[in-house]
Amino acid sequence: MVEILYFGRLMDVMGCSQERIALPDSVRDTDGLRRWLDAERILSGALLEPTVRIAVNDAIVPEPFAVSDGDSIAFLPPVGGG
């Protein structure tokens, strides 16, 4: 199982801020996760946008980045405060 976190508008798109998912064997990295989850939920590309970055275990990672059981994976739409 992995923990998936969604922030900003992706919380609305996904309908939750976090969930636990069992990854299929075919998903080994962030690219695979984006493609599989986007297709699984019929999102038409919301998780494939290049401006959406991914953090694995609380650090933004260069992609593709390996993911495995026990990881916490966050989808981050464009950020900005102030």
Partner: peptide, 26 residues
């Protein structure tokens, strides 16, 4: 520091207006 906070700091902003709620990006 303000330019950093506006574009790179890890925050997400949602605005509420009479038209509803909108997530705001830089």
């Amino acid at each position: 520091l303000m330019d950093y906070l506006k574009t790179e700091a890890v925050f997400w902003k949602k605005e509420t207006t009479p038209k509803g709620e909108t997530w705001i990006e830089p």
